[in-house]
Amino acid sequence: MQTQDLKIYTKLYELRSINKTAQTMQYSQSNITARLQALENELQTQLFRRSFQGLQPTKAGELTYAYAQQVLAATANLTARLHDTSARKKVVISELLFNYLVVEQQRFDLKDYDFQIKSSTAIATLAEAATPLIITYADFHHPAYAEMKRNWLTSAFVSDDGWLNDRPYLINSDTHCPFRRQTLATVPEAATLAVDSWNSIIALVEQGRGVALLPRYVAKAHHLQLLADYKQVRIPYRTFALQA
């Protein structure tokens, strides 16, 4: 028994006419008749009696109508809840952390959370205190939020082949990005090249056109090689909760 069959049956019950139901629902009369017969066969009972006054529901038809209303109402309610983002807990999160915690580690169920991916600068300069949860490696301070947890992203300088070969160090153009700051603390700024997005940085490293400080999970996923001359570093990230 499909939801559409119950919708057709409900309309038949209310209009008491196969012709009117077909016109209203934009089906052929033969289609409506076939769906009704299939439903009666499935339930093994007659749902309507045909008369000059139209369709007259049997006792089984009355019960089926009540059942159809309940099922259709419950289905509509479920659909609304599944698509209602207001019922989900809102989370502001940095891009690499979304890829790591949500995509890679699957620590969050997308049905329960509404994620807003923001740059480090956008998070560091966040003025409004409207989001219940913030997960970031940006230098975030706000009187309305309390730090709940601190973790680290193990990261390393990587290239496509494990060698530097006079290629530029790619850094994110976001000035609040800790990967950028760590790179600038390690190599001269003249040896770096600023790029607007993480996707572009990763793609350029894959193409052998630069090296970059990236989380180990990114290096593993894209088959990138660690540069032997550099130690691994741990980039801290923190979880903040909006205080009541």
Rank of each mutant, 00 (worst) to 15 (best):
A80W: 04
A66E: 07
V92T: 02
Q46A: 13
A68N: 04
V91W: 07
L43R: 09
Y237R: 02
W198G: 01
L164D: 08
H223E: 12
Q56Y: 03
A76P: 03
V71E: 08
Y100P: 05
Q2W: 05
L63S: 10
Q46N: 11
Q29S: 04
Y67Q: 09
V71N: 09
L97Q: 11
L47K: 07
L170P: 06
Y230K: 15
G61T: 13
E104S: 08
E104T: 14
Q105T: 01
A38R: 13
F179V: 01
D196N: 15
I18K: 15
D174G: 02
F48H: 06
V187H: 12
T183S: 12
T85G: 01
F179P: 00
L72E: 10
W152S: 08
F157Y: 15
P143N: 14
Y137D: 14
H83E: 14
R209H: 09
H176E: 07
Q23F: 11
A60M: 08
L97M: 04
F52M: 10
L133K: 12
R16F: 05
Q56T: 10
T45A: 10
Y13V: 08
L184S: 01
Y65C: 07
T21N: 04
R88N: 11
R88S: 13
D196Y: 01
T64N: 06
L39N: 03
P143I: 03
L6Q: 08
V103F: 00
N41A: 12
T136H: 00
F115V: 12
L184W: 00
S155W: 09
P168I: 07
D174N: 06
D161A: 03
Y27Q: 04
L193A: 04
F52K: 14
A191K: 10
S17R: 05
A80Y: 08
S200P: 00
A60Y: 13
G208S: 12
T75I: 03
G210E: 05
H83F: 13
L214I: 13
W163Q: 12
K89F: 03
